[in-house]
């Protein structure tokens, strides 16, 4: 198979400009592979929602191109295979949750038979008869997920699905997203919650001011894990470790040594230092968190 077929979403030079001065999305090259949970990160105003709207055909790009589930964005045949939640969930306030899903099913040309199963999956079945206008934010978000699920989509696009939710709602949504990401379904998740993304996503892309600044596996972006060593005397510890691991693998600041080696080697390193008469007060693995990666790439909080 070609890479285009493997990629459920691919964009090439995707750009959206408003007027002559505002570039919301700037030459974005994005690849989301079949079956993965893909995190799309960026600070507020970075262009995440604009990008997702372009992928859904809601906004036309100024230049560049995109393919989503093998179709141009907004093509009916493609939309039928995509479930989405873009920004806040939007339904008819005077209709019940179930009637709202019937409207969605009618538009998508689907049978109404799967509606109760979708409501059950998001735990809304007991409130299915209640008007959407009476739902809490968490219930509204879950109804939006149910609306996406009734299409049995191969791609789910979720834009900030935990926005506006209380802690309980965030936990429920996190569980739901993990469930959605199982099997062959592809999930494209835009989120501010870096911890969520780190736990849930296989690969991530980070954008800043409309430009892609990083894209890859979460562990690739975090970089190789390291070992942190505190030992005294520190100079002797450093010399001993440089002899053992090579100079390039040892870096030190203020008496703390950072070793660019696999954490699996911790017992050997500890034994070597102790046998050299060096007292080890701390020896632990250290990984950069996605948040640290994000901050270093964007220079701001998500």
């Amino acid at each position: 198979m070609t890479s285009t077929i493997d990629n459920v979403v691919s964009t090439t030079g995707l750009t959206k400009r408003y007027g002559k001065t505002i570039t919301a999305v700037d030459a974005l090259d994005l690849e989301v592979r079949r079956g993965e949970v893909f995190g799309f990160l960026g600070p507020n105003g970075a262009g995440k929602t604009t990008t997702l709207r372009m992928l859904l055909g809601l906004i036309r790009p100024t230049s560049g191109s995109a393919r989503v589930v093998g179709r141009r964005p907004g093509e009916p045949a493609g939309l039928a295979r995509i479930g989405s939640l873009v920004e806040s969930p939007a339904f008819y306030p005077y209709l019940s949750g179930r009637e709202n899903l019937k409207v969605v099913a009618d538009y998508a040309g689907l049978s109404l038979a799967g509606i109760d199963a979708a409501l059950d999956e998001v735990e809304l079945l007991p409130r299915a008869k209640d008007r959407f206008g009476t739902y809490s934010m968490g219930m509204k978000q879950r109804l939006a997920v149910a609306a996406a699920l009734i299409k049995e989509p191969e791609l789910m696009i979720l834009d900030e699905p935990t926005n506006g939710l209380d802690p309980q709602g965030v936990v429920e949504m996190r569980t739901l997203i993990r469930r959605l990401g199982t099997g062959s379904r592809t999930v494209l998740l835009s989120s501010h919650l870096l911890n969520e993304v780190e736990q849930t996503c296989d690969r991530v892309a980070i954008i800043r001011k409309g430009k892609l600044v990083a894209q890859g596996r979460v562990d690739e972006l975090r970089g190789q894990a390291t070992l942190i060593v505190k030992a005294s005397p520190s100079d002797a510890a450093r010399q001993s470790l440089e002899r053992m691991l090579g100079k390039a693998a040892v870096a030190g600041v203020d008496g703390t040594l950072r070793l660019s080696v696999s954490p699996d080697r911790a017992p050997d390193i500890n034994a070597a230092l102790v046998s050299a008469g060096i007292r080890v007060s701390e020896l632990r693995p250290a990984e950069r968190t996605l948040e640290e990666v994000f901050l270093s790439l964007t220079g701001e909080a998500a």
């Binding site: 055909g57 907004g74 939309l79 039928a80 995509i82 873009v86 008819y92 040309g109």
Partner: peptide, 9 residues
């Protein structure tokens, strides 16, 4: 809801 309508089929 206009976006809900336009993201269906």
């Amino acid at each position: 809801t206009v976006k809900t309508v336009y993201t269906q089929r």
